[in-house]
């Protein structure tokens, strides 16, 4: 059978390639500036021209880059922006309150429909893997968000990689918390930064992760205030527990905004501890620019974690966009470029 031949064609031509399986990319410019042919086999890039099944794609005039990944999304919240007042000017606490006013009216079908619409936007922008946190609501069926997104993950398997991370607040009872992890989630999350007892919240998340052998991804230190002692930073609590337990699975701290407020003499020992614990950090600049610093009259803090020193310390860093048109960022977008440019 003849191998199918396609050409990408001009940037303003007709979009026609979705669904085409490739065995080669011809004449494409690589990140190092050279023009080459790439083979594709079994979902991976190969050296030299592809020989297996699939089409040859002439990509003359196009440049190839790695696809992006979104390490931190909230697909259960995505695209609820039109249901709330976008001019409310939410900080984190106000955004949560606004979200909770609409949550009772949201069912599994609603979550699935918006999540899929959001994934379509992410995919079109060049994002092929997404980790979504998902709430465990107190009103109604606490599992409806998880069930909807686990089902969507299976539906999209082979096209978009979806990871579902349970995000139960500290007010979710222990029994519900423990049951949520058995619904097919990929990651154990949590939000100790909002809990009255952060130590207890980190403990119950890590207990669950340890029991099920799952990776951990906690919302941590999503505030700019650092008047508290360093030992009370969420990321310090997390790192100490990871080290004490000898936790082998991957552990991530998302946001870590407070680290951006620490002077070097306080920051460096904290980052040493994070590095020893092998924790990765996810920075989410756009949402934190939106949520943080609202009480400042001038010179508002940027809401960014200490990205420069994190990289210089050799700590794994991922960057994401977090919220896509929801109470936490009514204008959020899944765009690779904006995430790079705007912070």
């Amino acid at each position: 059978m003849a191998v199918e031949q396609f050409s990408v064609g001009p940037p303003d031509g007709v979009a026609h390639l979705a669904g085409v399986a490739l065995r080669s990319l011809r004449g494409v410019r690589l990140p190092d500036g050279t023009v080459a042919d790439l083979g594709v086999a079994d979902g991976r890039v190969t050296d030299g021209p592809g020989a297996g099944p699939g089409a040859d794609l002439d990509a003359t005039g196009w440049r190839v880059l790695p696809a992006a990944a979104e390490p931190h999304a909230h697909l259960d919240k995505a695209l609820t922006g039109p249901r709330v007042d976008p001019g409310a000017g939410n900080d984190l606490v106000a955004a949560i309150a606004q979200w909770r006013t609409i949550l009772p009216s949201i069912d599994a079908a609603d979550v699935a429909a918006r999540a899929l619409a959001a994934v379509r936007r992410y995919a079109a922008r060049g994002i092929t893997a997404i980790r979504t946190h998902v709430d465990v609501p107190l009103d109604g069926d606490p599992m409806r968000g998880i069930d909807a997104l686990v089902a969507l993950r299976e539906r999209l398997r082979g096209r978009v990689t979806l990871q579902v991370c349970m995000l139960a607040g500290s007010d979710v009872p222990d029994a519900v918390h423990a049951a949520a992890v058995t619904r097919g989630v990929d990651v154990v999350g949590g939000c100790p930064h909002l809990a009255p007892d952060p130590h207890r919240e980190v403990t119950r998340a890590l207990d669950l992760a340890e029991r099920h052998g799952l990776p951990v991804d906690l919302h941590a230190d999503e505030q700019t205030d650092v008047s508290l002692p360093d030992r009370e930073l969420d990321v310090v609590e997390l790192a100490e527990q990871v080290l004490a337990r000898g936790l082998p699975q991957r552990v991530t701290a998302s946001h870590c905004v407070r680290l951006g407020s620490l002077p070097p003499e306080r920051l460096d020992p904290v980052l040493d501890l994070v590095a020893r614990a092998g924790i990765g950090i996810v920075t989410l600049p756009i949402t934190n620019l939106y949520l943080q610093g609202r009480d400042a009259t001038h010179l508002a803090p940027r809401g960014l974690t200490a990205v420069r020193r994190i990289l210089d310390r050799g700590i794994l860093l991922g960057a994401g966009a977090d919220n896509l048109r929801d109470p936490f960022n009514p204008a959020g977008a899944p765009t690779r470029s904006r995430r790079r440019r705007c912070s």
């Binding site: 990408v8 490739l22 990319l25 494409v28 690589l30 990140p31 790439l38 594709v40 979902g43 991976r44 890039v45 190969t46 050296d47 990509a59 196009w62 440049r63 190839v64 880059l65 790695p66 696809a67 992006a68 990944a69 390490p71 060049g126 092929t128 893997a129 980790r131 990689t161 990871q163 990776p215 991957r250 991530t252 990765g280 996810v282 794994l316 991922g318 690779r336």
Partner: peptide, 20 residues
């Protein structure tokens, strides 16, 4: 890497998740 996924990009052996 944060997501624990194998590397992707236009490099032999990497997952063929690419953007043109």
């Amino acid at each position: 890497e944060v997501l624990g996924l194998p590397p992707a990009g236009p490099v032999p052996g990497h997952v063929a998740d690419l953007v043109l």
